[in-house]
Design a protein around this nucleic acid. Structure first.
Lengths: 163, 163
DNA sequence: ATAGTAACTATGATAATCATAGTGACAAGA
DNA sequence: TCTTGTCACTATGATTATCATAGTTACTAT
């Protein structure tokens, strides 16, 4: 595509975020990182994206300060990618996307198989459903507060992708 | 680009959301709709996107059920676009993006001009800062609960774009 | 009759993405 | 030693999305 207008320096914070987050690949990679997938090949396999795309986006995300490259062994050189504090702070965005999709998955009167993943608030044991605040204890939900339990369907799908 | 794998039917809700939200244009159009910009030309002017892109994305968003076309006069035919309930429910996502960008705008020790927009909780008058829950009364924040006050810098920027 | 506005569509250039294949550095097993 | 395998990528060519610019349709206003 032609060079589009860059919104990185706009005053509007949504415009600035959209430069990074308005990209399917970035979102999928972030999802995988939040799920604990740190190795390049695992991310490629699970997202279904090409390795060049994953490579390019990880470089961008590193430049933006949301991920960090760590060498976890020297010979042969092997790296993994980890979310930085700035990256972990994107939890609210991904969680909001998850909540929205779960709420509107079967809006047309279809019956679904239930949520892909149930989230339990560690502090009080409540299933948080699709809320931003724990329905049991009223606490706002942050990264690390939740324990995810993937449904059988989700686990099967990920296994099929080799992720 | 070549036809990429479609994730609309994946079990993962983030993957499904990313099909729509992992797109810069969609995000910018949603932002404008949340700010009350409903006319095609106003969205084109403010986002800086080309009219073909805005047209294509509005069609997609209509298909996905997040916006609705309304004729607001018959002769000459004039339309506007409005968020549906499903569209309004994306507030959490956009608000989380806003919060993240405002929190990390000046992370390197720079001094900024403050937030682009201050949000006041209508119910209790508290400036909510960048939290998902009102720091004054503890209520979760939903679409319509907040009154935005754009900074002078943001207003100037939007005026310069003709938005 | 001319100019203006709103909501688009058409065209051609450019750039991003994909599928597929290949590379470099090493480990493990036959 | 030779082959196979793993991880983390890079290279290549085809395809398609996006942009800038211009044009269209259907009216209203002067």
């Amino acid at each position: 595509m032609p060079r589009r207008a860059d919104l990185s320096d706009t005053f509007c914070p949504v415009g600035r975020s959209a430069e990074l987050l308005g990209d399917r690949a970035v979102l999928l990679i972030l999802r995988d990182l939040f799920f604990g997938r740190r190795r390049f090949e695992a991310i490629v396999a699970n997202t279904g994206l090409g390795p060049q795309l994953v490579s390019a986006r990880l470089k961008l995300m590193e430049k933006e300060g949301v991920v960090e490259r760590h060498a976890y062994q020297a010979r042969p050189p092997r790296h993994e990618y980890r979310l930085t504090a700035k990256g972990k702070d994107l939890f609210d965005v991904l969680y909001a996307m998850r909540n929205w999709a779960e709420r509107w998955a079967y809006a047309e009167g279809e019956t679904g198989t239930g949520p892909a993943m149930r989230y339990i608030h560690r502090a009080c044991g409540t299933d948080v459903g699709t809320s931003t605040v724990c329905p049991g204890c009223g606490q706002p939900l942050r990264y690390g507060d939740l324990k995810g339990e993937p449904s059988a369907a989700l686990r099967a799908e990920q296994a099929a992708r080799g992720g």
